[in-house]
Amino acid sequence: MESLAMGGYGTYVWTCFGLAAAVLIINEWRVRARQSTVYKEIEVRIKALEESA
């Protein structure tokens, strides 16, 4: 527990590490989400074109 207190700077230190983790996770998630959105959009359009042809 003592090491988690960071000599009284716990709030500052943990906020920074939390923010960093959040930014990394958000970016990983956004990259994945965008890939699947773009892929699905293109898939729908191409399959629609294929059926109408």
């Binding site: 960071m6 000599g7 009284g8 700077y9 500052y12 230190v13 920074c16 590490f17 923010l19 960093a20 930014v23």
Partner: peptide, 14 residues
């Protein structure tokens, strides 16, 4: 800076 300096581990890389 005591333990506050540990912020460097996320600040400098970013």
């Amino acid at each position: 800076q005591g333990d506050a300096f540990r912020i460097i581990y996320v600040h400098v890389p970013s």
